[in-house]
């Protein structure tokens, strides 16, 4: 006589919990970001890792805006763009510095298109709409599950973020804002770190992180 379905489920849950807990890392990164003046649009903090991660985000367009300010992608994977608006859109990117160029063509209301990320990893590519120049989002091609996208708003200068369960052997935390200087924090020793946030060398704010 076999186990009842409920017992089977419970066993599988316990097994999977035990299995996953053996890979869970206890450390987390708690970050604080402050800007001197008006913040930029979005940034991403991440911990590089050997863990293979697959990202195929779906980005919608609603009220003449992208529904997210940034999405994480992988080279070789797809990004799906939807149009839930009542007007046409035409998503494109033309970032020669990252060899990123695509144009999904005209998207009628309700339309859906996809592209394959064919540009280099470790880059942030700006994406826009040919019909609505105000629209903007970014695709961050980073190969790590340990990341946090932080969306900024013009009225707030202080932000916090957490990246949980980072690898025990993590040595760096990187912080990237489009058009700003990339920040690399060496976390191989100590327990808290900070750096100026700069754009072309000019100080725009500060980031502080604590490992817990």
């Amino acid at each position: 006589m076999g186990m009842s379905p409920s017992k089977t489920c419970l066993s599988m849950l316990l097994f999977s919990t035990l299995l996953s807990s053996s890979y869970v890392n206890a450390d987390s990164i708690n970050g604080t970001i402050s800007f001197i003046k008006k913040p930029p649009m979005v940034g991403i903090a991440y911990v590089p890792s050997q863990t293979v991660s697959e990202f195929s985000p779906e980005i919608d367009q609603l009220d003449k805006q992208f529904t997210t300010k940034m999405a994480v992608v992988n080279s070789g994977n797809k990004v799906i763009f939807k149009n839930s608006d009542n007007v046409e859109h035409n998503v494109f990117a033309n970032d020669l510095s990252q060899s990123a160029k695509f144009d999904v063509g005209l998207m009628t209301p309700g339309g859906k298109k996809e592209i394959t990320v064919d540009w280099q990893d470790n880059s942030i590519v700006r994406v826009g709409c040919k019909i609505h120049p105000k629209m903007r989002t970014y695709l961050a091609s980073i190969n790590t599950p340990f990341h946090k996208i932080i969306e900024f708003s013009k009225d707030t200068q202080e932000y916090t973020f957490v990246i949980n369960n980072i690898p025990d052997d993590a040595k760096q935390v990187l912080f990237a804002i489009p058009k700003y200087d990339l920040i690399t924090l060496d976390i191989s020793s100590g327990s808290d770190w900070s750096s100026d946030i700069t754009k072309k060398g000019k100080v725009r704010g500060q980031i502080t992180i604590i490992k817990k």
Binding site: K37, K38, P40, L62, D63, K64, D85, N86, V87, K154, K199, K200, K202, R204
Partner: peptide
């Protein structure tokens, strides 16, 4: 019926200007 989304009419906000190099 799906009216086209419109941003509210408003007074321009200096803080929304994107200056070169901010």
């Amino acid at each position: 019926f799906s009216p086209v989304f419109s941003e509210p009419l408003a007074t321009p906000d200096i803080d929304d200007i994107e200056y070169p190099e901010d």
